[in-house]
């Protein structure tokens, strides 16, 4: 039991998707480029890493339209 996370202990997991966004699991807020505190409203969110999303800080799939090497 020692390795188990206590249920009341906040835990955030970050997953980097190859060629894609960063997944955040368990986050409550994201501070964006302009310092705005944006609430997280779904269990997992995808953060833009290509800087071209039309809905930053969230990914909107735009990375798929970019050339492979930039």
């Amino acid at each position: 039991m020692s390795a188990a996370v206590r249920p009341d202990e906040p835990q955030v997991e970050v997953t980097l998707c190859p060629g894609g966004p960063m997944l955040l699991r368990g986050a409550t807020h994201v501070i964006d480029d302009d310092g705005r505190r944006v609430p997280v409203e779904r269990p997992v969110v995808a953060l833009c890493r290509c800087d071209k999303s039309g809905r930053k800080p969230w990914c909107d799939g735009t990375h798929k339209l970019l050339p492979l090497e930039i």
Binding site: T15, C17, G20, P21, L23, R42, V44, V45, A46, R55, W58, C59, D60, G61
Partner: peptide, 8 residues
């Protein structure tokens, strides 16, 4: 936004 997460 949802499906940008869901596809991953």
């Amino acid at each position: 936004e949802a499906d940008a997460v869901h596809e991953q």
